[in-house]
Simulated assay, not measured.
Amino acid sequence: MKHEINQPIKDILQEAGLYHRQLLEFNDVNSSVISLGDYILADVNGDDTIDVKDVRVLVDNKLVKVTEVDTTNALITLEKPVVSGQEVSVRFASSSVEPEYVEKVRTEALSEIISKIPCEAAWAEEYNPTLRYIQRLMAAGMLLVRDYGFNEDIENTSKDGYKKLELASEKLNTLIATVCGEACSRSAQGFATRDDGDLFSKRPHISSEDW
């Protein structure tokens, strides 16, 4: 049986506190291409893809069309060029970790859950919301634990990460005990965490506010 319960990358980043809404304002753009600097762009609509639907641009308070988003270089291309002196505002989301790495951690979390669940009954559709919640907690916890000790400006990341892993373990134990039987719940004990080094390069903060 194929087990697909993947939480969107956006939800995992939000759970970890690593997802931020941004607003950048310019008045010196003289091109159809706008650079967003060193930001790592993040998905806004929860479809795990960063594209034109995830960026909102206003020129002189009028919404304009975005035709391309270059996530590698943090560049956006507008349908029509902007003239210097026009007021440009760009709304988007960012994170301090590449989405590809979050996807890797999300896969690891799912594999961990699959290895702990001893019965197929727990994969019934009615339990999918609980399993997605467990996956979100576990993946967010892994990100926070692995970040600890490298980026000192993020306080309590290790403690918060282990708390999320502990809560994920409790929720999974409860699910297994309820659906598979009490004796099987012990198989969910002890999620693994591996330190892959410094995951997050520090990014300069420009400005941010809610959409």
Rank of each mutant, 00 (worst) to 15 (best):
L175W: 07
M138R: 14
L78N: 00
I114F: 05
K80Q: 11
F191P: 01
A93T: 05
R194S: 14
H205T: 12
K163P: 06
L36G: 03
N61G: 06
M1C: 08
E103T: 06
A93G: 07
R56I: 15
C184K: 15
Y101G: 03
G149E: 01
L143K: 00
V66P: 00
I176R: 01
L144I: 09
V66H: 04
G37C: 02
G46E: 02
Y39M: 06
K202L: 13
K2I: 10
N173K: 14
V83C: 08
I117M: 02
C184G: 13
N6D: 15
D60N: 15
E103I: 05
S207Q: 12
G190S: 15
I50W: 00
S201Q: 11
T71H: 07
D60A: 09
C119K: 00
N27K: 10
L137T: 04
T107K: 13
W211N: 09
P129E: 04
S31V: 08
E125N: 06
E125F: 01
E98G: 07
V57M: 00
E108V: 08
V88P: 04
V44M: 04
Y162D: 04
L172N: 04
W123G: 02
I40N: 11
T174N: 13
N73A: 07
D160T: 11
V90P: 00
S115N: 12
D196I: 10
D38I: 06
N61Y: 14
I114Y: 07
L24I: 07
D153W: 06
L23H: 14
D210F: 12
E209Q: 12
A74V: 03
Q22M: 14
N128V: 15
E152H: 11
E166P: 05
W211G: 09
A16G: 05
I5Q: 08
T193R: 02
L18R: 12
S185Y: 02
W211Y: 15
R56D: 08
R132W: 02
L58H: 07
P204T: 03
T72M: 08
N61A: 15
D54S: 03
E79L: 12
A177R: 09
V66M: 07
P81D: 08
C180P: 02
I134D: 00
K62S: 13
A177V: 12
R21H: 15
E182H: 07
S201V: 10
G197W: 06
N128F: 13
E170I: 14
E126G: 01
V29W: 03
L137W: 05
D210A: 11
E152S: 07
K65A: 14
T72A: 13
E4M: 11
G149N: 03
E166M: 08
D147P: 03
F191R: 02
S89Q: 07
L199E: 04
L110C: 01
G17V: 05
S208N: 10
K163S: 12
D70A: 10
P8D: 05
G37R: 06
V179Q: 00
E4C: 08
S96E: 13
S32G: 09
D196L: 08
I114G: 04
N156F: 15
V44A: 03
R91E: 14
R136P: 03
F150L: 10
A122L: 04
V66C: 03
V33Q: 12
T49L: 11
V66Y: 01
P8H: 02
D60Q: 08
T178W: 04
L63D: 12
S169A: 11
T178D: 09
R21M: 10
L165G: 01
R56N: 10
K159A: 10
I34C: 09
V102S: 03
V179L: 02
C180W: 00
T157V: 14
S158Q: 10
